[in-house]
Structures are given as structure tokens and as C-alpha cells.
Simulated scan of single mutants.
Amino acid sequence: MAVKKMLPIPGVLEVLNPFKLKKQRIMNFNPAEGISTRQPAENTKITVFDYNSNLCKAIVLEKIEDTFPYLESSHLSWINIDGIRKEEVHAICEQFMIHQLIEEDILSVGQRAKTDEINDRLFCLLPMIYFNNETSAVDQEQVSIVLGKNFVISFQEDPSRDVFDPVRAKLLLQGSRIRNGNADYLCYSLLDIIVDNYFMVLDNLGERIELMEDLVQHRPDTRALARINFLRRQIFLFKRAISPVRELVNGFLKSESDLLEDNVTKYYKDVYDHIIQCNDLADNYRDTVLNLQEMYHTQLNLKLNEVMKVLAVVTTLMAPPTLLAGIYGMNFHNMPELESRNGYFYTLGGMGILLLLMIFVFKKRGWF
């Protein structure tokens, strides 16, 4: 398995923020006030897949009003809006008879994953998560999906990226299951591809964990600790984002809406199993990172013990020579050895012999 190289971390920033990321508030929507802090998108992209079992048209629209005829279309329609603007969301919600509470949820930011059923419309909101290879961070955007009798409307925050390309490819493929299914199967396909992408993010986090294990074992320094803390935070953010998705999918399984056919329920059950696996794997990664922190402290203690061992051995080896030097460094007149012609050399030789003898004994006992 190829592991991408971690980014260099210069300066003091490595302790506080090893990948130069600014901290962002995850929850910046106040439900009590009903105020959204979302900024209107600079660019929006409206695409429609109008299809049945025999044909499929992929259309890019200029204005939100061009989507209105698809409410009465005899075909199934998937309307995908990339980039959210309040006026456009209000217009399409009004035309497609989507309740105001759902409209507020679409315009909100930082919402937990949820599902609602209002006025014969099924609504779900969940995070679409990406792994940023440049910063080794987990990015996310909020995706809202509205299911009607013969249409599915999806709202995305970022018009530059999504994970729906496999769904688009299947829609263009003659005879595919999604072409022969109803709108509830299309909704399932969108949820399924979002949840499956969670596993790709987990794979990238797993690679970073493996890299950190090697780094902690061979170089347990302050930089390694900063990276461990950063990785732990990313796993925490990922876990917090996907945890409510399980209840979202469970809401589809328990729903008695006429929009959901009985033969499609088994597919939502498969998505439910996948999100449980994601949660379990995220928990395992979180525990692994906590073990990495313990391993870091253990490695530091071992390193400190090695240093103390070397210092203790050096101190012990130098003790006898220091003792001899101290004895013959006394300024007494009546010391017979002071008059010895070769006393200096005898003393140095004795020191050397004691030093070598102690080294031999320490080696034999395996002390170093």
C-alpha cells in the first residue's frame, strides 16, 4: 500500500497546528433564532437528469425557473443544485411544495444529519466528506436531498466537487437498475454513494495512522506528538459528522411513506449496515490513535531511560579514577608516593586498569 508523505511542519506552528489549518467552528447555526450564517454561493450549477427505462437526458440549466416544468414530468427527474442561494432555494421549494421548515434546514449550516417527512415529501440532510491530501485534513459539506413522487432534488454547498459521478454514469447506462427504478431508488443511490465515500476517507486516515506508528517508533519528538493530536482531532470530527447518519438511514427504514416501496427497503438496510461499519471503524481508529499517544509517551520514557543508563554507566566508570585523583591531589608533605620518580605514570596506569576492569565486568553482566 502506497503511503503519501506527510507535509513538513516548520516552526512553532507544529505544536498548535501542524498542518497550518485555521480552526473552524463546526456549529454556527442557532436553531433558537432560526438564523443562518451561510454566505450566498458565488456560482451555482443546476443539472437535471430526466429519465426513464428507455432514455435519459442530462441537461444543464441556466435559471432555477427552468426546473419548474419537471414537477409535472411523466419521467423521473433528478435536479441537482450546486451552490446554495436563498432566493433560488425559496423559489424551487415554493414551486415543488416543499415545506418552509425543510427550506430552513437546507439554508442552515452545521446541522446534524437528520430526516423528516412533511407534506408527502421526504427530506434528509447529511455530510458529504472528503479527504484533503494536501493538508491531511477531513473536509465536509452539507448535502440536502428532497424525495418526491417522481423527482429527487439535491442541494450541495460546493459546486466544484461531489461524489455523485458513479450515479451519473449509471443513469446514462441503458438497462441499469437505477434507470428501471423509481425515485426512491435514486434517493437510495445518492445516500449509498455518500456513505461509501466515508470508507475512502477512512482508508486515507488509516494510511496516516500507519505512518504515525512508524514515526512514533523511530522518532518520538514534539512534531510527532503534534501530528498525533492533529490526526486524533480529524478522526473526532469525522466520527461526530457520521454518527447521526445511522439514525437518518434508520428513519427511512421505519418510514411508512408511500414514496418508499417495500422492495427498495432492503437497499436502505444495506446502507444502514455500511454506516454501522463506518462508525465501528472510526471507533477503532480513535482507539488506535489513543494507543499511539500512549506509545509516544512510552517511547519517550524508554529514550529517557537509555540516556539515564548511559549517564549512570559513565558516572560509575569515572568514580574510581576520580577517587585516585582526589587522594593524590591532597597537599600533605608526608606522602611517600609524591617522591616516586614514576608515580604519575603508575597512577594513570592504575586508573586505566580499573576502568578496563569495570568495563569488562559491566559487559559480562549485560549492563550495556
Results as ranks from 00 to 15, higher is better:
D258F: 07
Q24Y: 08
I153L: 02
D258V: 07
H297W: 02
L171P: 13
T315E: 00
P18T: 08
D192Q: 08
A312N: 11
C278D: 10
Y346M: 02
F360E: 10
D273H: 06
L101S: 07
H274Q: 09
F155N: 00
L13M: 12
K149E: 15
W78P: 06
E141S: 07
Y268S: 04
T135W: 00
L172N: 04
S77G: 12
L215Q: 10
L357W: 11
Y185N: 05
H90P: 03
L21R: 09
I178E: 00
K5L: 15
R227E: 12
N17D: 15
R121F: 01
V314D: 01
S340I: 09
L237N: 14
L122Y: 06
A325S: 13
I59E: 05
R365I: 14
T37M: 09
I98H: 00
C124K: 02
D66H: 13
L190V: 15
A183C: 13
Q140L: 12
K20P: 02
N52M: 04
H218I: 12
K22C: 06
C278Q: 03
P69K: 02
Q293P: 10
E117K: 00
L122E: 01
V167M: 00
Q299S: 08
T115N: 07
L21C: 14
K45C: 09
Y70C: 08
K363P: 04
R219C: 13
R168P: 13
D280K: 04
D50F: 05
Q39V: 12
E213G: 14
V271D: 02
S189N: 03
L21Y: 10
R365P: 08
G343K: 02
A41H: 01
S255V: 15
E94A: 15
N229P: 10
G181S: 12
N305M: 00
N43S: 09
K266V: 15
K114G: 07
I9P: 13
